[in-house]
């Protein structure tokens, strides 16, 4: 958009936020590691090292974050897990974003009865216990990674729809939208020229905050054993593995758990930073 000035203002504010920038940098490094890191290691994620089973982190063994009970390299497995968890979360967020923004925007713009009906539907879905809903979906259909993120995303869009609908409703009543109508602008111009650009801020913030939630949901489902299955690694099933060995080999839990904590916190800090940077009230 040509409103580069405001975006660059927001960018300057974000750049000044140390926690958010550190988090962003960490996330970039983690993502790159998750994508490229495993290649740098001589171990495959499912390769079993018979000589080093359940060894703690050390440089001598060549497994510098240790191995699990089956002698699989934890560094590689954690990065693989992070890659899969991130991918599932990103895709699920994207699904939520697409459904949520469309649903919310249409309800908000239409207003009146259409709005009331559409949001009532959201309320009903909201009332269902979400995890239960996902479990039913995975039981009904075959278990697959693809289905998993569709299932998570299908639940996640509800909040997004509410956020967007609230924003659209508020925007519709703002004087500058009425001013655009009075200037002769038609609905398309108003939606794409005025409403959407003003909606982007909160949507970006919510999407950023939604990713860690999605990671947690995925991890939780995998932990319960209805998400991603062995031999594939996700942060959730790695943590589930590790928790079984917590007393004898704590690193098997600690390594993926710290990775999860790191990712979740980074996204939250980044989201908060974005919220502060984009918040229109501060202007």
């Amino acid at each position: 958009m040509a409103s580069a000035g405001l975006w660059s203002d927001a960018w300057a504010r974000l750049a000044a936020n140390r926690a958010a920038m550190t988090s962003a940098a960490l996330l970039v490094v983690l993502t790159l590691l998750a994508l490229l890191g495993p290649m740098s290691s001589p171990y495959a994620p499912d390769a079993i090292d018979w000589e080093h089973m359940a060894v703690p982190p050390s440089l001598e063994s060549g497994h510098w974050l240790g191995t699990d009970r089956l002698g699989r390299d934890l560094f590689v497995r954690t990065l693989h897990g992070a890659r899969l968890s991130l991918a599932v979360a990103l895709l699920a967020t994207l699904v939520s974003l697409l459904i949520g923004v469309t649903w919310g925007a249409v309800a908000g713009f239409a207003g009146g009865r259409t709005d009331a009906l559409m949001m009532r539907a959201v309320d009903v879905l909201y009332a269902l216990p979400q995890v239960f809903f996902v479990i039913i979906l995975t039981v009904l259909f075959d278990r697959s990674v693809f289905l998993l993120f569709v299932a998570i995303g299908a639940v996640g869009w509800l909040t997004m729809a509410r956020v967007v609908r609230g924003q659209a409703l508020a925007l519709r009543q703002r004087e500058f939208v009425e001013a655009a109508v009075a200037s002769g602008a038609g609905p398309v111009r108003i939606v794409f020229g005025h409403i959407i650009p003003n909606l982007m801020g909160p949507v970006i913030v919510y999407a950023t905050l939604m990713i860690p939630q999605m990671i947690l949901v995925e991890s939780f489902l995998s932990f319960l054993g209805i998400g991603i299955q062995e031999p594939l690694a996700s942060l959730g099933n790695l943590i589930a593995d590790g928790s079984a060995e917590m007393e004898t080999a704590p690193w098997i839990l600690l390594v993926p758990a710290s990775c999860l904590v790191l990712i979740v916190f980074s996204f939250n800090f980044l989201g908060d930073g974005l919220r502060d940077a984009l918040d229109p009230r501060e202007r």
């Binding site: 958009m1 405001l6 500058f176 009425e178 001013a179 005025h194 229109p280 202007r283």
Partner: peptide
């Protein structure tokens, strides 16, 4: 045309002044 009560509120915060003033022309 119309001029509103809230001077700031009636201008789109994400548009430059030029874009706002030009909107009727663009239409």
């Amino acid at each position: 045309q119309i001029v509103f009560q809230d001077p700031l509120g009636s201008l789109d915060p994400r548009m430059t002044v030029g874009q706002s003033v030009a909107e009727p022309l663009a239409v």
